[in-house]
């Protein structure tokens, strides 16, 4: 038997994560994308809204690395600016949905009884609508627009997180260390703060990172069908919708925005997968 070295669960987590090179690479890509979005004004070679009627539908060239669209706007610049929109949709909606869902899940699982019944029936109702349909209903109510898409995606993320956190809370509630806390006389609020929340949080974070990817996809899809960001906006889904008419004529119009969505979503998903695997105790 070797002498045990002091390692915290968080340390173990990092140690396992470090061995997952693909996840780390995805993490670097995610970081890069976020930086590109933040520094879009500096990085974008052109004004994303500036039309150039001398350079319509040009293929990729040195002047326009990803070509130009039907108004002669530089596609690369539009993609760089569009990243801001997609990231906002993904991050804000996943975070908002996660926050509300986690709170509801904690309450539902901890209090139990009729609070649990009511909250879970509400979730059942939200679950009865296919996710994107619910988002479309919200957009139909509030009108098209990026902000409304964010809320729409957040709303249908809520029941997912609520269920997840409720399940974790209920199993933690049965854990002996929580019961041990009760026999000691630790108050409910403290048990929740010191023992349950830290136990549920890693799962929430992992799920959130996976959720960001699907939120970006849904946001782009809504824009693609005309319910999200409206035309002049350099949103990737809207750009794809725009490029549809030029299939076979100017394929780069649909190629680059689609690629951008794919890479961003893939990065978030791979990162989320890596986090989840590093978190689960069972080794591969």
């Amino acid at each position: 038997m070797t002498a045990p070295t002091i390692r915290s669960p968080a340390g173990e987590f990092w140690r396992r994560l470090r061995r997952r090179h693909t996840a780390l690479a995805a993490g670097v890509v995610v970081l890069l994308i976020i930086l590109i979005a933040i520094f879009a004004p500096v990085l974008a070679p052109y004004d994303p809204a500036a039309a150039d009627y001398d350079a319509l539908l040009q293929g990729p060239s040195l002047a326009h690395l990803a070509g130009t669209d039907s108004y002669g706007r530089d596609i690369l610049s539009r993609i760089i600016w569009g990243g801001r929109i997609s990231l906002t949709v993904g991050l804000v909606s996943a975070f908002a949905g996660g926050l509300v869902g986690t709170t509801l899940g904690l309450l539902s699982g901890w209090i139990g009884g009729w609070v649990d019944t009511v909250l879970m029936r509400l979730c059942d109702v939200l679950f009865a609508f296919p996710g994107i349909l619910l988002a479309i209903a919200v957009v139909a109510l509030l009108g098209p627009g990026v902000a409304n898409v964010v809320w729409a995606v957040a709303v249908f993320s809520v029941p997912v997180f609520a269920r997840l956190v409720r399940g974790t809370t209920m199993s933690l509630k049965q854990a002996q260390y929580i019961q041990a806390g009760r026999t000691i006389g630790v108050s409910g609020a403290k048990l929740m703060l010191y023992h349950i929340l830290p136990g549920a949080l890693p799962v929430v974070i992992v799920y959130m990172s996976l959720r960001i990817g699907s939120a970006i996809l849904v946001g782009a899809a809504l824009s693609f069908i005309g319910l999200g960001a409206q035309p002049p906006s350099p949103e990737w889904g809207a750009m794809l919708a725009d490029g549809r008419s030029y299939l076979g004529v100017a394929d780069h119009l649909t190629l680059f925005p689609g690629l951008a969505i794919f890479i961003v979503v893939l990065s978030f998903n791979v990162l989320g997968d890596g986090l989840r695997d590093a978190l689960s105790q069972r080794l591969q």
């Binding site: 996809l217 899809a221 649909t254 794919f262 979503v265 998903n269």
Partner: peptide
């Protein structure tokens, strides 16, 4: 699988149309 999960359906549709119908 993770690629398929991350692939935007509408983009895939456009790519397929471009390849099998247009070209």
């Amino acid at each position: 699988a993770i690629g398929g999960l991350s692939f935007p359906g509408f983009w895939l549709g456009l790519l397929l149309i471009n390849l099998f119908s247009v070209h």
